[in-house]
Nucleic acid binder design. Structure first.
Lengths: 351, 351
DNA sequence: TTGGCAATCTGTAACGTTTCAGTGTATTGA
DNA sequence: TCAATACACTGAAACGTTACAGATTGCCAA
């Protein structure tokens, strides 16, 4: 009996990666005690606890994720659900960086769960919930009535949304105040004497489409400017579509003298369209655009910009999900980021 | 005995997610048989196999990842290792999309493993290998003598690199032919009468830095043009640094009349610098740039571009790692993508 | 008839972890 | 002195899967 036990432990100790059994053998304790000692359980003697933790650190013990997951059901995984064709480029990497930054200090891994044109957006969510592949989920392209959020709430899956919902259900979110953005943009254009404004909106259906539209409309009436309809396209459309539609609109009699654009890439297309029509940015028309990296001023110095920080969004979303998992009230994990002021180009300090 | 068994199975069947035990109970077979039947093992009767697979599909059975992982050591995970501050923006999302696209059709999940300024690039690699957190790894920012590749090769971890190494070791890679890119760029500039060329290179240290430099030099001597040194900056530098360095160089007596740029964002800075110096793109100087999305022509129509497809890189890298895991020879999983021709702006068809 | 063999199927153990239900020993209160 | 109790620790079982080593059956050759 004693011999067999010794054999078994030596066998274990000889293996590559240390496990609880290895630690138990080295400390002369039972596996249970070691497990408890590592998580600071109260019924373990202070000295034993220290000893175990010391040995664990020395030999570089790391709990086996599969073992923990099988036993507890906890995956230590946060899933970021992404639309792989619609999402605007640099946006995604920033969010991923932000999320990673937060998860790096935790035992959590980030898994990217994609879905594409053909698929129901619910599919990856159902997969995650049904298979229990993650402890928490981050979604974007949030809708006012978002079936994904409702589903996860019903199934007890912690999540955070990039953008708000409007279903009377409470859950963590991170959102940029697009209402204020649109208002400030309009006010700025108005202050420059622009009176006929067009909006290149977010994709209809998403929550911030409404916020943007309302802000735009509110400010229009505030400053007494009027809207030139431009709603056949949104920032989800292709560069070429936006460009040609802009050119079309700019060739009309009653053309806009100001644009508000919800995305930087789309702004490039708007400007191209303006110039296709033979008009000049800054003289015939001004454009206020959101951007997530500071590049638009290089493009045309006449552009007016408002910065939206997606890296911040990512880290915020990650913290929110972790908070919910950790037992915080979902209602306390909501954040609406104020839109910064509209910025014009200022000559950089040359070295 | 019989009663106990029945109880146990009924208990199981009542649970949320179906397991092999559930299937065993429903089919009246043993757990082992069910497991074998699902993976088309030869010693299972044809009818039994069909029956088990039918029931499994009906009740939506999905193998528990933790169970499989614990038992077999296989994680069904591919890890994409990313530098979270240096990587150029849109580049990353494209790669992720490409990888996802391939993994979506497999049982593999994609986990993003970040590392940042402060860290040793080896750290995430060691973590992955030591903890066995992934079955395969994708790395970028590859160096001629890359310790990460060597380490993974030594430890039997399948991987693929974005960019080649030059250590005499064979492993899968995906690379864009930057030698040809640089040559074609120089040739194009030469054909336009440009004779004094500057190169905004990739970061020194990375393998494709050398490829680019060599291609640039080779073509210079071929066409009899000369180089204006511009090697105090690389595409890893900040937009502002590149911009001011460019302006500096352009104000010199012996200024370049042509640029070759290895990245689109950097090209924006180069053009800004050129204009800061009071010169005009297309008249005083021409610029050939790589780009990964078709936006540079919107920026300045005089720009000449070569497209590099990072989404393709991603899917290629994913396929390579899977191939290696699946037993293919690593030497057969290498791909060098030819650089496409230099493209000038052509008026788009307006709708 | 019998031994052998192929064709199917099955129970048990193990992967590493945590939880449950203890076990043994010293300390306390009366 | 004895029971009660706090303290420190422990083995066994379970999570879901696969591999190993059988078990049962029918069939065929000798």
């Amino acid at each position: 009996m004693d011999r067999q036990r010794t054999d078994k432990n030596e066998e274990t100790a000889a293996q590559g990666r240390p496990t609880l059994k290895t630690l138990a053998f080295m400390t002369g304790l039972g596996v249970t005690t070691v497990s408890r000692a590592l998580k600071d359980a109260p019924e373990i003697g202070a000295e034993t606890r220290r000893r175990v933790q010391l040995v664990a650190k020395q030999i570089g013990y790391r709990p086996n994720r599969a073992g923990v997951r099988l036993r507890t059901g906890r995956t230590n995984v946060i899933s970021l659900v992404l639309n792989t064709d619609r999402e605007i480029m640099s946006f995604v990497s920033d969010i991923i960086y932000g999320v990673s930054e937060v998860l790096a200090e935790t035992p959590y891994h980030l898994i990217v769960t994609p879905y594409s044109r053909s698929q129901d957006p619910m599919e990856p969510i159902r997969y995650l919930v049904e298979t229990g592949s993650a402890d928490g989920v981050i979604i974007s392209r949030t809708q006012p009535n978002d079936p994904r959020a409702r589903y996860m709430l019903e199934h007890g899956m912690p999540f955070a949304t990039h953008g708000r919902t409007d279903m009377g259900l409470v859950h963590p979110y991170h959102d940029f105040d697009n209402h204020v953005f649109a208002m400030e943009a309009v006010r700025r254009l108005a202050s420059m004497g622009r009176r006929k404004l067009a909006l290149l909106s977010p994709p209809p259906g998403l929550t911030y489409y409404g916020h943007t539209l309302n802000g735009f409309a509110d400010a229009l009436s505030e400053v007494g400017a009027s809207e030139i309809p431009f709603n056949a396209v949104s920032i989800d459309h292709s560069i070429e579509q936006i460009r040609s539609r802009t050119a079309q609109v700019m060739r009309r009699e009653n053309r806009p003298d100001g644009f508000v654009s919800s995305a930087a890439a789309a702004t490039l297309a708007i400007v191209a369209g303006i110039e296709d029509a033979g008009l000049k940015l800054g003289r015939d028309v001004d454009v206020v655009s959101k951007q997530s990296s500071d590049l638009l001023h290089l493009f045309r110095r006449e552009l007016l910009v408002v910065n939206e920080n997606f890296r911040l969004a990512g880290s915020d979303l990650a913290r929110s999900v972790l908070g919910w998992i950790g037992g915080a009230a979902p209602g306390s994990l909501q954040r609406l980021v104020a839109a910064s002021d509209v910025q014009a180009f200022s000559q950089p300090v040359l070295v």
